[in-house]
Nucleic acid binder design. Structure first.
Length: 193
DNA sequence: CCCTGATTCGC
DNA sequence: GCGAATCAGG
């Protein structure tokens, strides 16, 4: 996994939303260990672990001087509520038709390119008009948020659909898919062609 | 068994 | 820094 800024952003976003590490791993196409490991390294707030590792053989040191736990407020992970900032403006954005990753043509710098990581992930169809997504919508979805453009499933098949996630403002994909869709220019330098 | 997250440690 | 292996609880 190459932890691009986008990937980290996606990890943070999913982590903050309370998804399980395995789930995040699934969504990002990486292992849960990778997720946990990275989250840990990023010092992301640990979530309630099912286990407890305090009976470590080293506590015996000087428990006496134990710093009386300063009434810590409970870590009520309060979701930062996505800034729906743009009050009335919510730019309808005339649908710039985000150039669907054309593997053959290499746009300049940071263009959405085919999910490189998508070697095992959904492949963006050449060009697909966005049909109304299935009636099934995740409760997370908020109004005003534009849906993620990431195609899921084989285009043309009955179960084909688009990701129902909320796209990052200014981007056509939700955080996790943006992580896969956008690759730093220098990173795809040579594997591009 | 399945799941969960945390830590360790070779790379 | 990374993440598989491992641990440990549900």
């Amino acid at each position: 996994m190459d932890w691009t800024a986008e990937a980290i952003e996606a990890l943070r976003a999913l982590w903050a939303e309370g998804h399980s590490t395995a789930e995040i791993g699934r969504r990002m196409g990486i292992s849960k260990n990778a997720v946990v490991g990275k989250a840990h390294r990023l010092n992301l707030p640990a979530r309630p672990s099912p286990i407890r590792r305090e009976n470590e053989p080293r506590a015996t040191a000087a428990p006496a001087a134990a710093p009386a736990a300063p009434a810590m407020a409970e870590p009520v992970a309060e979701l930062p509520v996505p800034p729906l900032s743009a009050p009335a403006a919510a730019p309808p954005a005339p649908e710039p038709e985000p150039v669907r990753p054309a593997l053959t043509t290499l746009p300049p710098a940071t263009q959405p390119i085919a999910p490189a990581a998508a070697l095992a992930a959904p492949r963006p169809p050449a060009a697909t008009r966005r049909p109304a997504p299935p009636a099934v919508v995740r409760p997370f979805q908020r109004m005003g948020g534009r849906s993620c453009c990431w195609p899921i499933g084989e285009p043309g098949t009955p179960d084909f659909r688009f990701c129902t996630g909320e796209a990052i403002p200014g981007k056509p994909y939700c955080p996790e898919h943006a992580a896969v869709a956008y690759v730093k220019a220098r990173d795809r330098r040579d594997d591009a062609a």
